[in-house]
């Protein structure tokens, strides 16, 4: 019971903090929309091959947008000493990490998923492809947040972590990009996108079970540095 309460207050605190600074919380979504909106300006007007690149474009924008704020996910707690209290709390640190990342996904990942149908139609994707893309984002963005959170935990005490974080995490995210954009490509060719979606679900299950432990250990290591 106290476990549930501790998890609840952790998620609640993150949401409350976001509500205190709504402009900051909206930044990733804005960034994502801007990147996607700028891309067509770089190609010819009404370029017929735009839908071909659309899935990759949306995914790259989602990748960068979700990494943008991840650097800060543990940094404040590290700097103000809250992390020490979290490390000593009865709630196991991996669960705290999972709760924080869940809140982070709700704030920074879910809006990207919800905006995807809009972007898909704007980029000229048909309904089935847009659906596959949105589903892929729904299954893939939590993995982005989890692996990004792990890298954020590794770099939490470091100066210039903002540059280091993408270097650490982007190569690890290549499978998510491949299956995520692959699902939309499959749908665009009239194929069943189930296979890549299942792969994304498998990746999510794997990272959900392993990453919180690794991230918690990385945070403890940062406290000992």
């Amino acid at each position: 019971m106290s476990l549930v309460r501790a998890l609840g207050s952790t998620v609640g605190r993150e949401l409350r903090l976001a509500a205190r600074a709504p402009a900051e919380a909206a930044q990733p979504l804005l960034f994502y929309l801007l990147v996607v909106a700028l891309f067509p300006l770089g190609v010819a007007p009404n370029e017929p091959s735009l839908p071909v690149y659309a899935p990759a474009l949306v995914w790259i924008a989602a990748l960068l947008a979700s990494l943008m704020t991840l650097e800060r996910v543990f940094r404040n707690d590290y700097e103000d000493g809250t992390l020490e209290q979290l490390a000593l709390a009865p709630l196991p640190l991996p669960l705290t990490v999972a709760a924080k990342l869940a809140a982070h996904w709700l704030l920074g990942g879910l809006p990207l998923v919800l905006a995807a149908p809009l972007l898909a139609s704007g980029l000229g994707l048909d309904a089935a492809t847009g659906r596959a893309l949105t589903l892929a984002l729904l299954l893939g963005t939590p993995t982005l947040v989890l692996l990004g959170g792990f890298a954020a935990a590794l770099t939490v005490g470091l100066p210039r972590a903002g540059v280091l974080l993408p270097i650490l995490v982007l190569p690890m995210l290549s499978p998510v990009l491949i299956f995520g954009a692959g699902a939309a490509r499959a749908a665009a060719q009239g194929l069943d996108p189930a296979a890549p979606l299942y792969f994304l679900a498998a990746l999510l299950a794997l990272s959900l079970t392993l990453v919180p432990f690794a991230a918690a250990a990385a945070l403890r290591n940062a406290l000992e540095a």
């Binding site: 309460r5 207050s9 952790t10 605190r13 404040n76 103000d80 000493g81 709390a89 009865p90």
Partner: peptide, 30 residues
Amino acid sequence: GQLHWLGHKNALHPALSAVENLRYWCGLQA
């Protein structure tokens, strides 16, 4: 669970009030 740790950092989030910070701590520590 049998010790209080007060580091040289206060473990308070600057955007939350004293009461909110302590309430979070209570939630976390049961």
